[in-house]
Design a protein around this nucleic acid. Structure first.
Lengths: 233, 233
DNA sequence: TCAAAAGTGTTTCCCCTACACCCATGG
DNA sequence: CCATGGGTGTAGGGGAAACACTTTTGA
């Protein structure tokens, strides 16, 4: 018997799923992508995009695959959240799920709408419909993680286009934290962090003064170990 | 066909394990519990306590069970860490593992030694032996989580006996963070947090002035949302 | 000229930090 | 009386918070 078989015989095996909480900011609200279930249980209910992990597929790869089945987005920020392993999560029987969350910006979103097959839509996190399984709990958990992490990392930039105004950036923080932020303090702190580069472009919207566009200099999401915490203002 | 069967037929199923990083403080060092593997692969190598999740067992319950197979500890602080889902972690084939970490104090430890069957021992996190699988990585991850979380929660108390001196508490922080801490600042900050209650007891050790014993007032691990961050001093 | 958002500095206060000596006890 | 850890206060600096007016543009 090959060594490969030693463990896989005689031990319990489990159905393992992935579920992805995909966040974006749209119309000044934080939203999540939900898909309508085509089969029982919870047929017709809204649920998180997700599915079963393949036999020879890594869990991370499965999460990415599910995301790409629902969208045409690439280069998404995707992070593992938590594994929900209670025995009674799924009425059909024992299904573990490894939850992820992901962040995209509206530019990336435009691509998506054309390609969708099954019904999917964006819902404000403060106005969620009834959800299948324990997906409401998973979203709550994702939101908590996002709120914490925005304070000491640069994930907020994942929700913005490549070029953005400082007001857009501030709105991202406000929408996620659910609080107002002082404009002058916010701008000073952001500029002190040294992760913004001003461009020579401006964004005109209506009849106000045009706003300067900035880009994010760091190539990836980074941890801010300086005291550059954003939270209370 | 009952609904229970709908999903469990025709889909990939996976072996799912739990692994637990059990920390304690002993002799002024942060240590983890390791057990010697009895079978191939990695036979004879040190590894984290852990095992396969049963068919009808929740993942949390499995982690707790593994802990109790190795120790007689109850009321342990146990927290899920991360799910390692690469396809090549285990040479026998595909095995997912859900990693946990746990914290115990020396009082609880004394109970343990009598009951152990298989070989197990405590190793300083800075002097780990060669480890089976990707367990080294799991320990590193657990340590990182612990170092972060000690700054904004009260988990450090899980490593101390019910009554402890302020010096013991400070040593716990120093051992975990790997840095020295200013005694006066530490004591002031801890007392300001309002989570310590002085007892009327003192601990005598040798020929010095006896140290007052304190207890932790909060019933559970709590988040410190005040600015009571502990880190830099 | 008006509406609407962009952009900009200063002061106050509190918290973090650095730092050194006396106390109580057992041997 | 001496060695050992227990226990205590203060002064200075820096970052966070509060706060309001001018600028630029299109209509």
């Amino acid at each position: 018997m090959p060594a490969t078989q030693a463990l896989t015989n005689g031990f319990a095996k489990h159905a393992v799923a992935v579920d992805v909480v995909l966040f974006t900011i749209q119309g000044g609200r934080l939203k999540v992508l939900l898909v309508r279930r085509q089969q029982a249980p919870y047929k017709g209910a809204w649920s998180l995009p997700g599915g079963i992990v393949g036999a020879e597929e890594s869990v991370d790869a499965a999460a990415l695959r599910e995301l790409q089945e629902e969208t045409t987005i690439s280069n998404v920020y995707l992070e593992q959240l938590y594994t929900f392993g209670d025995t009674d999560r799924d009425p059909r029987g024992r299904v573990l799920t490894v939850a992820y969350y992901a962040l995209v910006n509206q530019q990336q979103l435009e691509l998506k709408a054309r390609q969708r097959v099954s019904e999917a839509d964006w819902f404000p996190v403060r106005r969620l419909p009834e959800l299948a399984f324990d997906h409401r709990r998973i979203i709550d958990y994702a939101l908590e993680r996002l709120r914490n992490k925005i304070n000491y990392t640069t994930i907020a930039f994942q929700l913005l286009p490549t070029n953005f105004t400082l007001t857009q950036l501030q709105e991202a923080y406000e929408v996620i934290l659910g609080t107002r932020v002082d404009k002058r303090n916010f701008r000073r702190k952001m500029q002190q962090l040294g992760i913004l580069r001003p461009t020579r472009q401006f964004r005109v919207s209506g009849r106000q003064r045009p706003a300067r566009l900035y880009t994010f200099t760091a190539p990836k999401v980074i941890k801010l170990q300086e005291k550059g915490i954003i939270v209370p203002f």
